[in-house]
Design a protein around this nucleic acid. Structure first.
Lengths: 149, 149
DNA sequence: CTTCTAATTGAGATACTGTATCACTTGAGA
DNA sequence: TCTCAAGTGATACAGTATCTCAATTAGAAG
């Protein structure tokens, strides 16, 4: 395998003391294909398409590991039954979730670099990433009353 | 019932056109007792303790409604199977999650008021709340290598 | 390259959480 | 008080994540 070109994420895996296994690499590829937002079901399908030999358990184990490494982050967008896994390219991600129609609007600038630094110094922690979510009504839902579907 | 003293949250419920039912009030009380972070299981237990006549379905329905009103927000702190419901007193909440031991450290100031305003103007949305999560290692886990338990 | 070993995996049974259904009850406006 | 849409409780059901364990594998050492 062409292991000479390791993506930064795979590098991070190895540097943290984890093995660079076929299953983990495949899950990472599937996540990257998904465009950043994927439910576990969508991910399982994508992994299945890439390599049908990989078991469910390994996919969930990889997700769990990636979460701990801030490569990915589960969040609740639509259903409470299935988290959506958000890929965090540089350890962070920001979006707006419409609480009416579940539309997700992403945005880039958050200006949280300074706060990250302040928190690390003040609390003695080591921060590897962050997720900023705003909730509200998108431009389409804004003028409709808040009601159940 | 002493309905004369309505908490701001209950007021928000009614103002949005929802009935102020016994089940919803009880779920809100249980959430407030829980100190702000509760899994659905913990919440079900707490509601059971307050009034054993309330059914599971109503608790989940209330959570769903409260989520849409930004009274509460589910987030995945520990396991991906059970979201933790975070009470958002003023529509927003901020915390740091240790990806090693799952400890949650809360902090107050986020300085996101200006960004909220900018986003509303630029994107034409109506924002009712936000959740800011930082991930990393707490002061206790910082010096240990990243490993599975 | 071969050996070695702890880490990791795959399969599927299992556990558990959230949802759907439906007859009954209730909040709140008239 | 009356009325009825909104909401509820019970429970069966659906679907997702976990657990277990024998088999496999990544990567270090020789």
């Amino acid at each position: 395998m062409s292991e000479e070109i390791l993506s930064p994420r795979m590098q991070r895996l190895r540097d943290s003391g984890y093995k660079l296994t076929h299953a983990r690499i495949t899950v990472l590829k599937a996540l990257e294909r998904g465009g950043g937002h994927m439910t576990s079901t969508e991910l399982l399908d994508e992994v299945e398409a890439l390599d049908s030999g990989i078991g469910r358990a390994s996919v969930f184990r990889a997700l769990d590991l990636f979460t701990r490494l801030s490569i990915v982050r589960p969040t609740y967008i639509d259903s409470s039954v299935t988290p959506t896994y958000v890929l965090m390219p540089d350890g962070h991600h920001h979006h707006i979730i419409c609480t009416q129609c579940s539309r997700v609007i992403e945005f880039e600038d958050c200006g949280l670099g300074a706060l990250t630094h302040t928190l690390e110094e003040r609390l003695g922690v080591r921060l590897t990433g962050h997720l900023l979510e705003f909730y509200g009504l998108c431009s389409d839902c804004k003028d409709q009353p808040v009601r159940e579907e």
